[in-house]
Design a protein around this nucleic acid. Sequence first.
DNA 1: AGCACA
Length: 208
Amino acid sequence: MTSLNGTIFDPDTGDRLHIELAKSTSRRPRGGGDVYRVIDKRANKPEGNADHENFGEEGWEEDESDGHDDDGDGGSDEPSGTENENSSDKNELPADKSDQPVHKQQNGSPANDGRDKSSSDIPPCSTLFIANLGRTCTEDELKEVLSKEPGFHVLKMRRRSGMPVAFADFTDIESSTAAMNSLQGTVLASSDNEGLHIEYARSKMRKS
DNA sequence: AGCACA
């Protein structure tokens, strides 16, 4: 550049070339349409490699159309602000986000997103709700089955609302979950259906 | 599908 600077450009008028470094930060459309400037997320990340590349490579095309730089704000900007070329103003390529890798979990087991939703959407509880008991099922019969499970505490039955249901208290959720998985579908002597239906006890104390 | 006691 310095070798060409001052070269006689037009011999008739004597104009000379005026070459200088392009001010990459000179084009900032303040008040214009595209104010959408993406805050650089890579700025505070040390692994962001945006420093060495594209350093002021877009400033050249602006200088030949303008000829003059903008007032003031050109020099005060930091050189790190030059990588907003791909922000949102011009690259409206259709369907450019179709190739982004969406990794869905495709394991054979049913959707296990870190939390076992064993029976239903009821959150785990140390108390089990036992239904599908036979109409002739007694508390002692059920308690005899439950007492073989570790952590079993107490059993309460209630046969007022049609079919009898039972509530089994365990010492902790681990024990109740193990007992539920173990006794799920157990056919008692008094059962007339498929067997026991066990869920976590639904508490009335839900979050308001 | 059916969820109570204190």
